[in-house]
Design a protein around this nucleic acid. Sequence first.
DNA 1: CGGGGGATTGATTTTTTTCAACTAGCGTGG
DNA 2: CCACGCTAGTTGAAAAAAATCAATCCCCCG
Lengths: 208, 208
Amino acid sequence: MSFAQLPIPTDGLKRSFSERQEFMTENTPASMHFHVVSGGARLFKSLPDGRRQIIGFAHRGDVLPGYPCARYPYSAEAMRGVQVTCVPTPVIHHLHDTSPGACAASLQSACHLLVGMHSRLLMLGRQTARERLAAFLIGQGTRMGTHELKPVDPALSRADIADFLGLTTETVSRLLSTFHREKLISRERRAIHILDPDRLRAIVATPE
Amino acid sequence: MSFAQLPIPTDGLKRSFSERQEFMTENTPASMHFHVVSGGARLFKSLPDGRRQIIGFAHRGDVLPGYPCARYPYSAEAMRGVQVTCVPTPVIHHLHDTSPGACAASLQSACHLLVGMHSRLLMLGRQTARERLAAFLIGQGTRMGTHELKPVDPALSRADIADFLGLTTETVSRLLSTFHREKLISRERRAIHILDPDRLRAIVATPE
DNA sequence: CGGGGGATTGATTTTTTTCAACTAGCGTGG
DNA sequence: CCACGCTAGTTGAAAAAAATCAATCCCCCG
């Protein structure tokens, strides 16, 4: 998932966060936006009892939350480490007010996100665990316009995948084993390599 | 769910569609935007085998899809009848280019949608059937800033509710019966009246 | 050479779906 | 005006999907 890519002034306060550090908290006042310079972050919402849904992942170039809002709609936590430049919200607003292009760019990226969300609603609401995992692998592999599918980022734990797909780690693990047995993927350490994109794609929209 | 509310020129082509008529089809070129004048529409995505996820509902004042996109990200179908004014996509673009306010307004409404989507991801991915239905009833009742909770729109069938929540009609029906037994709601015909908002709200974020 | 966290696997339970029967309105046409 | 038939809704029983509970396993790191 790619997030807002704005022409951000680079003179903002630069900060670093280490593995698992939460640097943005759901529902707190959105005083800053975070422009990811390096590393990655997981974006998630939680329920009071700890259940967690990963909304997306942020990478170099993404801005969080990247669109106007009074409070952060989700939390963000560093995967490995992450470097960000912090941009005060008023600066973003000022940017929108003065530069006509900035507003249009934000709108553009918000719409891109929105369209992706629609697909994820369909996935979470109506697809089976097997279909969801196949879709996830394809989606991850497709990041970057490369023709060949890339392996899944080893920074993602099984729990991350599970929380992204609305499943448990056990279910994810079992399905990965099944896919492995079916020679759709190979696994080395955490990295998952896609062996048969076509057959994976066929799974995504097929009942059995 | 409320959709984009833009200052649309009212001189567009006015059209009417009757119950169940699909007037916007997922993945076809987005040549028109539809400004809902009266009635309502269900917005949905489908899988090849017929599984359906309702993305949202559109009412008077909403614009579909309301944000720039080359192809419609979902389909729209009339509930009861619906009256719309059709606005060619280029007009929308022109509006964004010329009026700075228009672009900001679109961004605003896109963000509002986006924030709602995040919550729905959490709901579909991590909440139980019971919690989802309770959330839905609260959400429907809260439409309009009224303090009192309104009954659920009788134009919504059980299938609509199920497809919105990622459940089956049977599950929805059973849960509604349970809620009725627990005196949380009352039913007359299709309309569902909320009797105990507080207890319903308590269900939303609680594991039993 | 342990120790520990994540991952995998297995057995069992729970939740939800599926399949099936039945019921209640509602509109239509005899 | 009433009976028929249709569609939507409800309910029950059985099946399936996924979660939960419980053992290991496997690296990686100290």
